[in-house]
Amino acid sequence: MRSIVYYLREFFRPEWVRKFFFAKTAPLVAPSYFKDYPSLTGKECTQCLTCMMICPAPGAIAVLHKKGGWEPEIYPGHCIRCGLCVEACPEGVLSSGRILDVTSRDRTAFSSWYRLQVDDTLCMRCGNCCVSCPVNREVDPQLAGTGTSASDEVIMRIEGGRVTILHEEKCTGCKTCENNCPNRAIRVARMVEGIQGEEEAEA
């Protein structure tokens, strides 16, 4: 009989009643290392668009001209919170979680370059790419028509009836050659490589 009374009394303990009727686990907060949507740090954006180029989600980030200058904007319905824009930005305009702390501690960065590739089966050797390239035009103003050039400093020229790429590293990624190619034979690809421990790491 007494045991039944003790048993029933258990259910009238205020602590038990509170635990039974209300949430038991503490309110859960996001941990400090959680990569939330990137937020602005207040540093000045130079509109290099590295963040937009590295973003894997379509329409997630745009660099907009606001009153105080250029400013990246994140769209939450599109952003996948991968944090690549935070890592890639050379100015540290964006921050998210502890990405900036980790990259400065480990001295990691992204290095990027442009790769030019000509598909010889599609290329018809018109030389449009060599002529239209703004870098080529600056190096060799004589370059015209057939796309042949006497200068060795041009990015690409027609040599022996086919396009030869001489100085890939001078490419600025403007894709003028791609737009002027009549059958999409030339392709400009942006290559990105993660690097660590180099002093002058440019993104």
Partner: peptide, 10 residues
């Protein structure tokens, strides 16, 4: 994101 914008599938 998918029902909002399609995200990486868009």
């Amino acid at each position: 994101n998918c029902p909002i914008s399609g995200c990486v599938y868009a």
